[in-house]
Design a protein around this nucleic acid. Sequence first.
RNA 1: GCCUACGUAGCUCAGUUGGCAGAGCACCUUCUUGGUAAGAAGGAGGUCAUGGGUUCAAGUCCCAUCGUAGGCUCCA
Length: 611
Amino acid sequence: MSSAGGQMERYESSKLYRIRHSMAHIMAQAVLEVFPEAKIAIGPPIEDGFYYDFELPRAVNEQDLNRVTKRMKEIIKGGFSFERRVVSADEALAMFANQPYKVELIEGLMAGNLDEYGEKRKDGEEVILTTYRQDSFEDLCRGPHVEKTSDINPDAFSISFKEPAGAYWRGDENNQMLTRIYGTAWETQEELEDYLQRLEEAKQRDHRKLGIELGLFAFSQLVGKGLPLWKPKGAVLRDTLERFLRDEQIRRGYTPVITPHIAKVDLYITSGHYPYYADSQYDPIDVDGEQFMLKPMNCPHHIQIYKSEHRSYRDLPIRMMEFGTVYRYEQSGELNGLTRVRGFTVDDAHLFVTPDQLLEEFIAVVELIQYVFNSLGLLDFKARVGVRDPESDKYIGADDIWEKATSAIIEACDRLGLQYTVEEGEAAFYGPKLDFIFRDVLKREWQLGTVQVDYSLPERFEMEYVGTDNKTHRPIMIHRAPFGSLERFIGILTEHYYGAFPLWLSPVQMAVLPVSNKVDAEAKALAAQLQAEGFRVEVYERGQLGKKIAEARGQRIPYQVILGQRDVENGTVSIRLRDDTELEPMPVSEFIAMARHVRDSRAMDLVPAQQ
RNA sequence: GCCUACGUAGCUCAGUUGGCAGAGCACCUUCUUGGUAAGAAGGAGGUCAUGGGUUCAAGUCCCAUCGUAGGCUCCA
């Protein structure tokens, strides 16, 4: 996005926005010329481009899009001006008599003051209907547009870079499915090419592609979709992450617990999960007349552990941790590699605290999350406080409880000096939460860690502790997960690092590359020595050295340990880093010391700074 | 779940209007014994996702199912 004078220009008032908005109209005109019977819906600018939704007589193909593109270029070159006109409702209804979606829009605007997405308009302003016309095409529209079509660069847009997509009218799955044609448009051809190249790079970085190449995970039709299988290299990566977090949590006073993967439906009826989230849970299993289900969350189980003993204020805070695997029935169309699956493991913990302890414990959790992100080199993240949507009734718990929880989160953020935004409708159903949104190297945003303050579940489960006053009190729960889910997190990490994990996380940390197979035996002995030092090592025995290097590079092996006759005689190794840096031959002991230091300090660089 | 497209060897892909199932890489064997981005030759590997249908004949056309991709919807 362009910026002016150091201050971010609002996208809505930028030239790019007007270009894209105008492109949507131009595309609609071209599509109507190719498909005269098409019905047009809406066509707004979006990030990086625009779209327009159509009801078409048949599926569009590449050829259609080429024809549309050709026609769009002609319209652009025609230099038609965009003419704004204020129209009365009757006039508009007459003009769009053949366009049912436009009629619905006009009626919505006049009667219910609904905007183009079917949402109640918030500004409450009086509705003025306006249209914009270019060439032969006039569309109901608020604007703004460029002055004339020739203000647009005919070589800086593309509509066939993405497959046409189905989209529900007004985003409601009960409505007609329309065909959405996406476009991208820029001021210059270079910007267009940059954008297309960024898309290409994202494709190269895709964890689904890298996951296969690096042997991290697999899916099986027989096991079922959305159920990842961790292969040895993925499993060691995941296990390393788990151990890192487990150790860190134990240092901070957490205690591990373990709970089963199924439980009686009654547990989730009590917790409130069952009625609210019936759609996204697996159907219950009948066992001897009782209903059991795969657990969609770990918290009710942990609550039962809390309740298994009589608790005193002296026991609190209790911090229970579990890498708990949960199962959720995601719609099949939503499944996506490791980032959206049907069975995944949450790095879960539940803290049970007194009101006095809440703030301190909340802050400690945020500090843990910051520490974890820092250790992994995830530096670009922002915090979002998710609060209730006041219009919705999907939440449980009384108003004053929500207010208490929300103000606790905001106070903790202020005390930590955290930059945060507050967003309505982003709360969990039982309480408000603080989410950490991570931006990866491609500037894509991912929701990772989450912390939730919960007064509701303690209430529903009638949790208690005895206070100093010898009376029973209700604990407060903090739900939190720094990674969110191990699956999604590793998918994101893979893309962020482009498969080149820091040494401590690399599935294979070093590969020994014998220069010829005359030194294969020595290479194996060296590998055994390195393995005994606790490193994950492979020996590459196939082909000539060049081929071994090519393969090791492809596998993003951090240290490529080259061993030839010369090295054997001198007791040295020649280290090549995965970024093609070649180090001077060094004694084996020196290499081990260096690698150990890099690994144990969880450094991002493969060579310590002082070297 | 919905719309659209796709599914051919472990991986990446070719396969004409329906007419004997292919390539590169990987794998196995042999040769080569090498110093920083893929040495050479040979071999093996397939119920063309699965099940039906049309046809003298189906990888190719039709239907269903499963899976995948891009969207929509959803995301505790």
